[in-house]
Design a protein around this nucleic acid. Structure first.
Lengths: 107, 107
DNA sequence: TTCACCTGCAAGAAAAAACTAGCATGTGCC
DNA sequence: GGCACATGCTAGTTTTTTCTTGCAGGTGAA
Protein backbone atom coordinates (compact mmCIF):
# COMPACT_ATOMS: atom_id res chain seq x y z
CA UNK A 1 0.00 0.00 0.00
CA UNK A 2 3.01 2.21 -0.08
CA UNK A 3 4.46 4.12 -2.98
CA UNK A 4 8.00 5.11 -2.14
CA UNK A 5 8.22 8.69 -0.98
CA UNK A 6 10.61 11.44 -1.87
CA UNK A 7 12.88 12.64 0.89
CA UNK A 8 10.80 15.74 1.37
CA UNK A 9 7.58 13.77 1.54
CA UNK A 10 9.05 11.38 4.06
CA UNK A 11 10.39 14.25 6.17
CA UNK A 12 6.95 15.83 6.19
CA UNK A 13 5.25 12.57 7.13
CA UNK A 14 7.66 12.00 10.00
CA UNK A 15 7.40 15.56 11.24
CA UNK A 16 3.64 15.27 11.14
CA UNK A 17 3.49 12.01 13.04
CA UNK A 18 6.04 13.17 15.62
CA UNK A 19 3.48 14.97 17.74
CA UNK A 20 1.47 13.57 20.66
CA UNK A 21 -1.75 15.28 19.66
CA UNK A 22 -1.51 14.08 16.10
CA UNK A 23 -0.67 10.56 17.20
CA UNK A 24 -3.82 10.58 19.29
CA UNK A 25 -5.82 11.87 16.36
CA UNK A 26 -4.61 8.98 14.23
CA UNK A 27 -5.40 6.61 17.07
CA UNK A 28 -8.91 7.98 17.46
CA UNK A 29 -9.62 7.87 13.74
CA UNK A 30 -8.24 4.36 13.45
CA UNK A 31 -11.27 3.29 15.48
CA UNK A 32 -13.58 4.97 13.05
CA UNK A 33 -14.22 8.25 11.28
CA UNK A 34 -15.43 11.26 13.15
CA UNK A 35 -16.18 14.94 12.70
CA UNK A 36 -14.04 17.66 14.12
CA UNK A 37 -16.16 18.98 16.98
CA UNK A 38 -16.83 15.52 18.36
CA UNK A 39 -13.18 14.62 17.93
CA UNK A 40 -12.10 17.73 19.81
CA UNK A 41 -14.35 16.78 22.71
CA UNK A 42 -13.09 13.20 22.66
CA UNK A 43 -9.48 14.30 22.75
CA UNK A 44 -10.04 17.10 25.21
CA UNK A 45 -8.44 19.81 23.11
CA UNK A 46 -9.80 23.02 21.62
CA UNK A 47 -11.35 22.90 18.21
CA UNK A 48 -9.02 25.44 16.57
CA UNK A 49 -6.05 23.47 17.82
CA UNK A 50 -7.49 20.26 16.47
CA UNK A 51 -8.17 21.90 13.14
CA UNK A 52 -4.54 22.93 12.97
CA UNK A 53 -3.39 19.38 13.54
CA UNK A 54 -5.93 17.94 11.14
CA UNK A 55 -4.75 20.35 8.47
CA UNK A 56 -1.20 19.12 8.92
CA UNK A 57 -2.25 15.50 8.86
CA UNK A 58 -4.23 16.10 5.69
CA UNK A 59 -1.35 18.01 4.09
CA UNK A 60 0.88 15.03 4.77
CA UNK A 61 -1.69 12.73 3.17
CA UNK A 62 -2.35 10.79 6.37
CA UNK A 63 -6.04 11.59 6.73
CA UNK A 64 -8.83 12.58 4.37
CA UNK A 65 -11.76 14.90 4.86
CA UNK A 66 -15.28 14.59 3.55
CA UNK A 67 -18.31 16.78 4.05
CA UNK A 68 -21.55 15.15 5.00
CA UNK A 69 -24.96 16.32 6.06
CA UNK A 70 -26.19 15.00 9.37
CA UNK A 71 -29.76 13.77 9.83
CA UNK A 72 -30.85 17.21 10.97
CA UNK A 73 -29.18 18.98 8.05
CA UNK A 74 -25.96 20.19 9.67
CA UNK A 75 -22.80 20.22 7.58
CA UNK A 76 -20.26 17.96 9.24
CA UNK A 77 -16.68 17.52 8.20
CA UNK A 78 -15.71 13.92 8.67
CA UNK A 79 -12.11 12.84 8.85
CA UNK A 80 -10.74 9.38 8.33
CA UNK A 81 -7.31 7.82 8.25
CA UNK A 82 -5.60 6.94 5.00
CA UNK A 83 -4.11 3.45 5.17
CA UNK A 84 -0.37 3.94 5.10
CA UNK A 85 2.66 1.81 5.79
CA UNK A 86 6.09 3.35 6.08
CA UNK A 87 9.10 1.32 7.09
CA UNK A 88 12.09 3.14 8.48
CA UNK A 89 15.57 1.67 8.32
CA UNK A 90 18.97 3.28 7.86
CA UNK A 91 18.82 2.15 4.25
CA UNK A 92 15.37 3.53 3.54
CA UNK A 93 16.43 6.84 5.10
CA UNK A 94 19.58 6.86 3.00
CA UNK A 95 17.55 6.25 -0.14
CA UNK A 96 15.10 9.02 0.66
CA UNK A 97 17.90 11.42 1.56
CA UNK A 98 19.07 11.34 -2.05
CA UNK A 99 16.00 13.24 -3.16
CA UNK A 100 16.02 15.92 -0.50
CA UNK A 101 15.72 19.36 -2.00
CA UNK A 102 16.29 21.32 1.17
CA UNK A 103 18.72 24.00 -0.06
CA UNK A 104 22.43 23.86 -0.59
CA UNK A 105 23.81 20.81 1.12
CA UNK A 106 24.08 17.91 -1.29
CA UNK A 107 26.43 15.36 0.12
CA UNK B 1 15.56 -6.18 15.29
CA UNK B 2 12.92 -3.97 16.77
CA UNK B 3 11.61 -3.93 20.28
CA UNK B 4 8.30 -2.10 20.31
CA UNK B 5 8.65 1.46 21.47
CA UNK B 6 6.62 3.50 23.87
CA UNK B 7 4.68 6.37 22.43
CA UNK B 8 7.20 8.85 23.71
CA UNK B 9 10.12 6.91 22.29
CA UNK B 10 8.43 6.65 18.93
CA UNK B 11 7.64 10.36 18.93
CA UNK B 12 11.25 11.15 19.67
CA UNK B 13 12.51 8.84 16.93
CA UNK B 14 10.17 10.37 14.38
CA UNK B 15 11.00 13.91 15.41
CA UNK B 16 14.67 13.08 15.16
CA UNK B 17 14.43 11.54 11.71
CA UNK B 18 12.21 14.32 10.40
CA UNK B 19 15.09 16.63 9.60
CA UNK B 20 16.99 16.90 6.33
CA UNK B 21 20.38 17.25 7.98
CA UNK B 22 19.82 14.24 10.18
CA UNK B 23 18.51 12.19 7.29
CA UNK B 24 21.73 12.98 5.45
CA UNK B 25 23.77 12.04 8.49
CA UNK B 26 22.05 8.66 8.61
CA UNK B 27 22.62 8.28 4.89
CA UNK B 28 26.31 9.13 5.20
CA UNK B 29 26.83 6.79 8.15
CA UNK B 30 24.95 3.99 6.42
CA UNK B 31 27.88 3.88 4.00
CA UNK B 32 30.31 3.51 6.84
CA UNK B 33 31.32 5.03 10.13
CA UNK B 34 33.03 8.37 10.28
CA UNK B 35 34.28 10.96 12.74
CA UNK B 36 32.62 14.28 13.25
CA UNK B 37 35.04 16.68 11.59
CA UNK B 38 35.25 14.60 8.43
CA UNK B 39 31.51 14.15 8.44
CA UNK B 40 30.96 17.88 8.76
CA UNK B 41 33.17 18.47 5.73
CA UNK B 42 31.42 15.75 3.77
CA UNK B 43 28.00 17.17 4.50
CA UNK B 44 29.06 20.77 4.09
CA UNK B 45 27.75 21.94 7.44
CA UNK B 46 29.47 23.51 10.42
CA UNK B 47 30.85 21.23 13.08
CA UNK B 48 28.83 22.67 15.98
CA UNK B 49 25.67 22.20 13.96
CA UNK B 50 26.58 18.64 13.13
CA UNK B 51 27.36 17.95 16.78
CA UNK B 52 23.91 19.17 17.69
CA UNK B 53 22.30 16.80 15.23
CA UNK B 54 24.52 13.91 16.24
CA UNK B 55 23.57 14.47 19.86
CA UNK B 56 19.90 14.23 18.96
CA UNK B 57 20.43 11.14 16.87
CA UNK B 58 22.33 9.52 19.70
CA UNK B 59 19.69 10.53 22.24
CA UNK B 60 17.09 8.83 20.08
CA UNK B 61 19.23 5.70 19.93
CA UNK B 62 19.74 5.88 16.18
CA UNK B 63 23.52 6.22 16.17
CA UNK B 64 26.32 5.26 18.52
CA UNK B 65 29.57 7.01 19.32
CA UNK B 66 32.98 5.52 20.02
CA UNK B 67 36.29 7.15 20.73
CA UNK B 68 39.31 5.95 18.87
CA UNK B 69 42.89 7.05 18.50
CA UNK B 70 44.06 7.75 14.97
CA UNK B 71 47.44 6.56 13.69
CA UNK B 72 49.01 9.86 14.70
CA UNK B 73 47.51 9.81 18.18
CA UNK B 74 44.55 12.13 17.72
CA UNK B 75 41.37 11.37 19.61
CA UNK B 76 38.59 10.83 17.07
CA UNK B 77 34.94 10.38 17.85
CA UNK B 78 33.49 7.88 15.45
CA UNK B 79 29.79 7.61 14.86
CA UNK B 80 27.92 4.72 13.36
CA UNK B 81 24.29 3.89 12.69
CA UNK B 82 22.34 1.55 14.91
CA UNK B 83 20.35 -0.96 12.86
CA UNK B 84 16.72 -0.07 13.37
CA UNK B 85 13.45 -0.95 11.71
CA UNK B 86 10.30 0.94 12.54
CA UNK B 87 7.08 0.34 10.69
CA UNK B 88 4.45 3.03 10.73
CA UNK B 89 0.79 2.25 10.17
CA UNK B 90 -2.36 3.77 11.62
CA UNK B 91 -2.53 0.74 13.91
CA UNK B 92 1.04 0.97 15.12
CA UNK B 93 0.54 4.67 15.82
CA UNK B 94 -2.68 3.92 17.67
CA UNK B 95 -0.91 1.34 19.78
CA UNK B 96 1.95 3.67 20.62
CA UNK B 97 -0.43 6.52 21.40
CA UNK B 98 -1.77 4.53 24.35
CA UNK B 99 1.49 4.98 26.22
CA UNK B 100 1.98 8.69 25.60
CA UNK B 101 2.73 10.55 28.78
CA UNK B 102 2.60 14.04 27.33
CA UNK B 103 0.51 15.79 30.00
CA UNK B 104 -3.18 15.86 30.57
CA UNK B 105 -4.92 14.64 27.45
CA UNK B 106 -5.68 10.95 27.74
CA UNK B 107 -8.27 9.98 25.17
C1' DT C 1 -35.76 35.26 18.37
C1' DT C 2 -32.73 32.76 21.04
C1' DC C 3 -30.17 28.67 21.87
C1' DA C 4 -27.27 24.88 20.62
C1' DC C 5 -24.86 22.85 17.43
C1' DC C 6 -21.81 22.76 13.08
C1' DT C 7 -18.06 25.09 10.25
C1' DG C 8 -13.91 28.58 9.04
C1' DC C 9 -10.29 31.88 9.73
C1' DA C 10 -6.74 35.04 11.53
C1' DA C 11 -3.97 37.72 14.72
C1' DG C 12 -0.94 37.48 18.38
C1' DA C 13 1.47 35.12 22.33
C1' DA C 14 4.28 31.42 23.96
C1' DA C 15 7.36 27.67 23.48
C1' DA C 16 10.63 24.85 21.07
C1' DA C 17 13.99 23.94 17.55
C1' DA C 18 17.65 25.25 14.57
C1' DC C 19 21.68 27.67 13.73
C1' DT C 20 25.91 30.90 14.33
C1' DA C 21 29.89 32.67 16.42
C1' DG C 22 33.32 32.16 19.48
C1' DC C 23 36.42 30.30 22.77
C1' DA C 24 38.27 26.45 25.31
C1' DT C 25 40.98 21.97 25.38
C1' DG C 26 44.32 18.53 23.40
C1' DT C 27 47.58 16.12 19.87
C1' DG C 28 51.59 15.63 16.37
C1' DC C 29 54.59 17.81 13.00
C1' DC C 30 57.74 21.42 10.84
C1' DG D 1 56.86 28.15 18.98
C1' DG D 2 53.39 28.08 15.47
C1' DC D 3 50.37 25.52 12.39
C1' DA D 4 46.92 22.03 11.35
C1' DC D 5 44.14 18.85 12.93
C1' DA D 6 40.97 16.71 16.50
C1' DT D 7 37.43 17.50 20.43
C1' DG D 8 33.98 20.19 23.69
C1' DC D 9 30.95 23.76 25.26
C1' DT D 10 28.02 27.92 25.73
C1' DA D 11 25.68 32.15 24.89
C1' DG D 12 22.74 34.48 21.88
C1' DT D 13 20.05 34.97 17.61
C1' DT D 14 16.86 33.50 14.23
C1' DT D 15 13.26 30.65 12.66
C1' DT D 16 9.57 27.48 13.14
C1' DT D 17 5.96 25.36 15.51
C1' DT D 18 2.42 25.28 18.77
C1' DC D 19 -1.43 27.16 21.04
C1' DT D 20 -5.01 30.69 22.57
C1' DT D 21 -8.37 34.01 21.82
C1' DG D 22 -11.93 35.82 19.36
C1' DC D 23 -14.70 36.62 15.62
C1' DA D 24 -17.27 35.32 11.39
C1' DG D 25 -20.72 32.33 8.93
C1' DG D 26 -24.44 28.56 8.69
C1' DT D 27 -28.31 25.13 10.26
C1' DG D 28 -32.47 23.24 12.99
C1' DA D 29 -35.39 23.27 17.12
C1' DA D 30 -37.88 25.38 21.21
Amino acid sequence: METSHTGDELARILATLANPHRMRVIAALAHGRNYVSALARELGISRPLLQLHLAKLEAAGLVTAAFELSADGKAMKYYDTVPFAVTLTPQSIALAARTLTTEEGNN
